[in-house]
Design a protein around this nucleic acid. Structure first.
Length: 923
RNA sequence: GGACAAUUAGCUCAGUUGGUUAGAGCGUCACAUUGACAUUGUGAAGGUCACUGGUUCGAAUCCAGUAUUGUCCACCA
């Protein structure tokens, strides 16, 4: 049969992908409202909703996001095909600090201007236009992956609807006293000139000189001598025997950097007896631990370093100098004064840095806005805190985290959670919706701010709508200059994207339209992301939603692992090992990349990817393509064969392949339902390649049951579609099926696990036939092995003899398959028990085939091989007999297990007997 | 310092209620090659399932301990 010229020999992803994505978008079936309108989904169908973890608006697609998209699109397409009302909602995040620092850097490189040169308004204008331009890039790249996102609902954390949600949430928390303003120690980034939250700190290991200094009668150690000017407290553990003589509160006069001082002894358990001398001095203004000690004992707190990272007047002659510059000079002075005991040059310690591209963190005391995670309040008659709400959501199993071990990590994080600093001194982001009356100017100042209860005007006011006048005195007002932590708005993402608060009251379940999304799609079914943002984002969404609405944001959390390079290293610019998903797509196709990301990785575990792996999946897409070429050829021969609902199985092979298809459908459905996506993909690949292509397609060349071939292939396309949407849709079109429907809205093949889908197709399959056919496959493989071992020319045809009546009908029925696949010219049947001379016995179950070797092969060599086989069988029989003679096994194992072992023993014994007999005849 | 995970073929990994003579892909070796496909086909080699003990009729699978590796959290003045 001649191949139709228009189907190329290899699948060309480039040729298809853009075209198909366009067709999908044009159909609007990514939008669940349209699916209902078109009758694709029933109006009362169950819901399945996911919001996309929003990528940074200025970001580009990396392997992590590609992995996320591959997994989510798989699950979304599966549910759409299952008949769910399926919503997958896209959006982008403004990523405040990351974006601003990126744009500031670009502006500085180009124009040598800082943000202060430009001013707040101009900088924001520049960032906005940069973000807008950038947004197109990430959206375009997201589409490249084949993502079936409903773009009509696209959201942005900084757009008007999302901003309203932010102000609404802030106001409620403010009014409830959950948000407060307080002077506390913060992580200050002197480079970006802003605070940073605890979770965004990254520790970098460094080796620095460690200085031992003489502090009166003590020796103290430090890496930062420049912070020691104001140290006037010396802390030791109350149980430290070495310092028993010193009493808490005792004053000691000593010579220090800039002259004589009076130090006070403080006994506190924070002192580590095992570290150094066990004695330390503290700098409460620039260290959290020191700050806490100072608070416990009500000590003076004096700043040493300013916001720019320069020394304050307390440093006297060093005042105004930068830390780096001052340190050496200070050490020199200490040495000159004889206060330097020794220096350890090889001291390694962790330095806190701003993980979002900023500088080294300098703890400072600042007046900031905080979310109180420990404040008690009433909720449904119970006393709760934000922490307890977050714990309960998971502990009660309302939210399930996969894999489960991350629940422990989540709880541990909550246990150690401190109040969340939400104010940032950058400009890009949600302005804190708090206003101060100008009659009380000091309100905005960072120092000495005090709320006077007598004067209402002195209290800051939170407002959802912008305020122009003070509601109390009608005076001028000013807004807080700070912006909110970007995760504050991200924390509202499931709510804000689905219409809260604007439509929260009026949304009606069951009605179409985005204004009803909140009633229809909240809580969402699944939150899928990398485990690296469990704390940043997932926990904060749980915090916000449980607090604001007393419900959960999502039911299941599925965490995927990090994508690493071929050697298991993290991808990074410095290693130059970054794999760009877009390069992979253009080289191998989006489907190959998706398979490489999904198959071979399990939830929560890191996964490796490299060219080799993607190539192997590209090869598979091509394999599927070529099966399609073969099948489409059948379509041309047999035009009335379009979509076959119910094929007619005729042969053993038909029953076998349909039964296997049914099994695989069941299994794959179950695995996807359990989020075992990798296993589902592997099962499908093994079936497609190892059973359908390798066996049934070959058998079809003999038996030519077109309807079965076509049915199995089309079912496979449906099963594969969520994994590799492009090549399957392309094949669907090639088969001519697109005139009825796009594959993406076809119904998922029936199985018992099917939820919203159609009833099971009533195929009357003879399970027995299917099983018996497995014997044929098995014995053909064994014949091939003999041929290969005996170096029989593959082109040479051989003859075989079948003895005994038992299974020979099976061979007779499948004679043509046998001949074709095992390269046999004649099959002789003998009734007698006698084995043909000079032959090799091949057995599968009770089926026996003798390969006639006359003139073909060296019998002596064969005998060696048979001896090995005989020994194998003897060993196996021995182990089975031992097992079956064990009374405890018989008594305690399940009866069907015992029975199965007996059957194995019986069969193997028979095989061995025949083998021995035959071996004797060869001598 | 605390927690969590991993350890199965040369490499990457499956193996989810304990019952297989322990699997796949890649790689290796041998052979094949004009009809769906060399981005291929056929066959083969390759594993005490990290180690030690325990539970069980039965352990890669459950428990305890050990070793190695990795990750996260805390953070030392």
């Amino acid at each position: 049969m001649a191949m139709p010229k228009e189907i190329p020999k290899t699948y060309d992803a480039k040729e298809w992908e853009e075209k198909l994505y366009h067709a999908w978008e044009k159909s609007s079936f990514f939008n669940p409202d349209i699916c209902i309108k078109a009758g694709v989904t029933k109006a009362d169908a169950p819901i399945f909703s996911i919001v996309l973890p929003p990528p940074n608006v200025t970001g580009t697609l990396h392997t992590g996001s590609a992995c996320m998209l591959a997994i989510e699109d798989l699950i979304v397409r599966y549910h759409r095909m299952q008949g769910f009302r399926t919503l997958w909602l896209p959006g982008t995040d403004h990523a405040a600090i990351a974006t601003q620092s990126k744009v500031e850097r670009i502006i500085y490189e180009k124009e040598k201007k800082t943000r202060h040169d430009l001013g707040r308004e101009e900088l924001l204008r520049r960032i906005e236009s940069f973000a807008e331009e950038s947004r197109n890039t990430i959206v375009h790249q997201t589409k490249k992956m084949g993502s079936s996102l409903d773009w009509s609902r696209e959201a942005y954390t900084l757009d008007e609807k999302r901003s309203l949600a932010v102000r609404t949430a802030f106001k409620k928390m403010f009014d409830d006293g959950i948000i407060y303003r307080g002077e506390r120690i913060v992580n200050w980034d002197p480079q970006m000139q802003t605070t940073v939250s605890d979770d965004e700190i990254e520790y970098v290991e460094k080796t620095s000189p460690f200085y031992y200094l003489k502090y009166g009668p003590f020796v103290i150690g430090t890496v930062r001598p420049e912070t020691k000017f104001g140290d006037k407290y010396v802390v030791m553990h109350p149980n430290d025997e070495r310092y028993k003589a010193y009493k808490h509160g005792q004053k000691i006069n000593l010579e220090w950097i800039n002259g004589p001082i009076t130090a006070t002894v403080i006994k506190d358990k924070a002192g580590d007896m095992a570290f150094g001398s066990g004695v330390m001095t503290i700098t409460p203004a620039h260290s959290r631990i020191d700050f806490e000690i100072a608070q416990r004992h009500n000590l003076d707190i004096e700043p040493i370093i300013d916001d720019q990272g320069k020394l304050l007047p307390i440093a006297e002659e060093f005042a105004g100098q930068e830390i780096k510059e001052a340190r050496g000079k200070i050490v020199a002075k200490l040495k000159a004064k004889g206060l330097l005991v020794k220096i350890d040059e090889q001291y390694t310690h962790n330095v806190a840095t701003n993980g979002r591209g900023g500088g080294t963190i300098e703890p400072q005391i600042k007046k900031q806005w905080w979310i109180n995670v420990n404040k008690e309040f009433e909720r449904a008659g119970k006393t709760v805190t934000l922490k307890s709400l977050m714990q309960d959501a998971v502990r009660s199993k309302k939210i399930e985290i996969l894999p489960e071990r991350f629940e422990k990590i989540y709880f541990h994080w909550i246990d150690n959670l401190r109040d969340w600093c939400i104010s940032r001194q950058i400009w890009y982001g949600h302005r804190i919706p708090v206003y101060y009356c100008s009659n009380n100017k000091q309100g905005i100042s960072n120092f000495k701010f005090q709320i006077s209860k007598e004067e209402k005007c002195s209290e800051p006011i939170a407002s959802i709508e912008p305020l122009n006048k003070c509601p109390h005195c009608n005076g001028e007002i000013e807004q807080d200059p700070d912006t909110l932590d970007t995760w504050f708005s991200s924390g509202l993402w499931t709510l804000s994207t689905l219409g809260w608060p604007a439509y929260a009251e009026t949304a009606t379940a069951g009605k179409p339209g985005s204004e009803n999304d909140f009633a229809n799609y909240h809580p969402t079914n699944l939150l899928e992301s990398g485990y690296d943002i469990l704390f940043f984002w997932i926990a904060r969404m749980i915090l916000m939603t449980t607090y604001l609405l007393d419900t959960i944001p999502f039911k299941t959390v599925y965490l995927h692992g990090l994508v690493r390079d071929e050697q298991g290293r993290k991808m990074s610019k410095s290693l130059d090992n970054i794999i760009d998903p877009l390069d992979m797509i253009s080289e191998y196709g989006a489907d190959a990349l998706r398979l490489a990301l999904v198959i071979g990785s399990s939830p929560g575990n890191d996964t490796r990817i490299g060219d080799e792996k993607i190539v192997s999946f590209r090869n598979f897409t091509n394999k599927l393509w070529n099966i399609g070429r073969y099948v489409s050829n059948v379509g041309i021969r047999n035009r009335e064969l379009r979509i076959t609902e119910k094929p007619e199985p005729k042969s053993n092979a038909d029953h076998w392949i349909l039964k296997r298809l049914q099994d695989v459908t069941e299994e794959v459905t179950r695995l996807i339902e359990n989020y075992q996506l990798s296993l589902a993909g592997e099962k499908l690949r093994d079936f497609t390649w190892g059973e359908f292509a390798d066996w049934y397609v070959e058998i079809h060349k003999v038996e030519k049951n077109d309807a079965v071939l076509r049915f199995v292939f089309e079912t496979l396309l449906k099963l594969w579609h969520p994994f590799m949407p492009y090549v399957t849709e392309a094949l669907w079109e090639t088969l001519g099926n697109h005139t009825k429907n796009l594959l993406m809205i076809e119904r998922w093949p029936a199985s018992t696990s099917t939820q919203g889908g159609p009833k099971k197709v009533a195929l009357t399959l003879k399970a027995d036939d299917a099983e018996r056919f497995q014997l044929i496959i098995d014995i053909i493989q064994k014949i091939r092995a003999v041929r290969s071992f005996s170096k029989i020319d593959p082109a040479k045809l051989i003859t075989v003899t079948i003895r005994r009546a038992n299974e020979r009908i099976l061979v007779q029925d499948n004679g043509d398959i046998f001949k074709h696949l095992a390269r046999i010219s004649d099959i002789h049947i003998t009734d007698g028990n006698a084995a043909p001379e000079k032959s090799i016995l091949v057995q599968s179950g009770l089926l026996q085939v003798f390969i006639n070797l006359e003139g073909i092969v060296d019998i002596k060599k064969e005998r060696e091989r048979f001896k090995e086989e005989k020994e194998d069988k003897e060993k196996y029989i021995m182990s089975l007999e031992t097992k079956l003679s064990n009374k405890n096994f018989i008594a305690r194992a399940k009866p069907d297990i015992v029975e199965a072992e007996r059957m194995k023993l019986e069969e193997t014994k028979k095989q061995l007997a025949d083998l021995k007999h035959h071996l004797a005849s060869l001598l």
